[in-house]
Design a protein around this nucleic acid. Structure first.
Lengths: 79, 79
DNA sequence: TTAGCATGTAAAGTTTTCTATACATAATAT
DNA sequence: ATATTATGTATAGAAAACTTTACATGCTAA
């Protein structure tokens, strides 16, 4: 699989949700705090399953929490 | 991460989309046919990134292609 | 000052996703 | 009959996600 970009607003959502801590979110979705840290900081993106669980915590759609940014190939050869 | 269930309608979407083959879908999203087969048959669920790519092929939201079914713990101790 | 809490980083190890290769079957066409 | 295409299964290995443990920092409270 080619590299791409998935960003998220977990941090903001946590704060807007009664200042939920990383540990609390981790507990709610059933992973360790390390996993939450890594995803929040963009070290890697979650499995689809974890993405669903996180979205549900905030009662949002997956697409409202995570944003997939396509990378388009440069088709131009340059003048 | 606890086990859970993620189902999908990839098969139906392929057929409704000009009878797209597994190989064609695989090429469009940049994985091998094996990966498409495995996901379509539910052997495992895709990464979030691949889920996004598949959804985009069909111009749908992730949630329109994949369904997350929560498992609720049995809180009953038995009579 | 000392303690506790939230966050960040790191490294080794397990599990899951994905690749690569190979072979099998059914359906269609030549 | 034989060739081609779409699908399914299997297995070994690479890559990515996730765990576990540990330690460091800054902040707030006792």
């Amino acid at each position: 699989m080619a590299k791409s970009h998935i960003s998220n607003n977990i941090r903001i959502l946590r704060f807007n949700h009664n200042e939920m801590t990383q540990q609390q979110l981790a507990d709610l979705v059933g992973v360790t705090r390390q996993t939450v840290v890594a995803i929040e900081k963009g070290k890697y993106s979650p499995s689809l399953e974890l993405a669903f669980r996180i979205a549900r915590v905030f009662k949002l759609q997956v697409e409202d929490v995570f944003t997939y940014e396509e990378e388009h190939e440069e088709l131009q050869a340059g003048s």
